[in-house]
Design a binder for these strands. Structure first.
Lengths: 195, 195
DNA sequence: GTCTATATTGAGATAGAC
DNA sequence: GTCTATCTCAATATAGAC
């Protein structure tokens, strides 16, 4: 089959456009046009526009959670190093899952009004737990200051990470790893227990 | 006149709804309904829905820039204290200008496609300059590490600030000042030159 | 200044021929 | 599997009576 899987092609196109213009600003006609078919034909592959959004996002959530789980499970890293690796992964999403990240970040508030996207809330909480666990362990291990607020720290970090998607340009300047390194450097020297 | 200025009332209502549901998801019918008139009557006060958005945002930008200017101009604060005060003001926008901040933060990408909202870009750059100036001065004064990246620091700080609007609940927990204090504490102990 | 009524546009979705 | 053609609905905006 020389023809690329059309369903996947539609997903790729839709993902791009959702990221560029926002979900609600992207019409099925536009998706069809860029995919090279008419809007009506989309409904051969998907039951609704919502289905397309769902296919893009549920895939993203599964991948990201899996990867965070892997890092969080490593036993060869101390808490500070673990935060560092998690931050590197978090920033890497900007280039590796640009479109999905933009959609989740920019529109999850709107999307979760629809019950079918309730898993976005669970996703958020799962990721938060991965980070706060590491912070808490770090405190217990005496590696981080005992008066830190894990939830607040996570939120600062997360917002700085996902916020970067609005200004980061891959071609010039630092890599996402370098940005993560800078961020973690600022963070650690503020939260590492004095020694 | 016992009647509140209707134009202002419409603006207040619209601002609220834009923040709740997003600009494009808010219809003129809904605005009219909550303001107690029919959608058609809105056009007696505004030429278009865009005009309403504009009225809300241009006002916000003017106020914020003015206040940042005031803080940045103070001569009684050293760089670290100035960052602290600016961050406190930045976080205070969450409660003081909730709706406008949400709109600017969540939708400026979309809005600036429309030429008439080009001033949002200028606004962003102006605010950035206020912050990076302070960081740069701090380096020159030997108060901050010499290898910091003012732009990146500003972006971390800004994204953490505006991101907080998605999780901050005024009624319970910390005040915005307290959150700013925590944030700046983390930030400073990472960027203050050793002494 | 507000209403009724409606023009106009564009969206998601469907039916059925090919 | 894709197209043509169209339905249905909801949005912004307008015209003109009151």
């Amino acid at each position: 089959m020389p023809m690329v899987d059309r369903k996947q092609q539609i997903l790729d196109v839709a993902k791009e456009m959702f990221a560029e213009r926002g979900v609600s600003q992207t019409t099925v006609r536009q998706i069809g046009a860029r995919a090279g078919i008419l809007s009506g034909s989309l409904y051969h592959y998907f039951e609704s526009k919502s289905d397309i959004v769902d296919a893009v996002l549920s895939d993203f959530c599964k991948t990201v959670l899996g990867n965070y789980w892997q890092i969080a499970s490593r036993t060869d890293l101390d808490p500070a190093e673990k935060v560092h690796q998690m931050a590197r992964y978090g920033f890497s999403l900007i280039t590796e899952h640009t479109a999905a990240l933009i959609i989740v970040h920019r529109e999850s508030n709107e999307l979760i009004r629809d019950r079918r996207f309730g898993y976005l809330v669970d996703f958020d909480q799962e990721v938060e737990r991965r980070y706060t666990d590491v912070f808490t362990r770090g405190v217990e291990a005496g590696r981080f200051k005992s008066d830190i607020d894990p939830r607040m720290l996570y939120r600062f970090l997360r917002d700085a990470m996902v916020g970067a998607i609005r200004w980061y340009v891959p071609s010039k300047g630092a890599s996402t790893d370098q940005i993560a390194d800078t961020m973690v450097d600022v963070l650690l020297y503020g939260i590492l227990a004095d020694n």
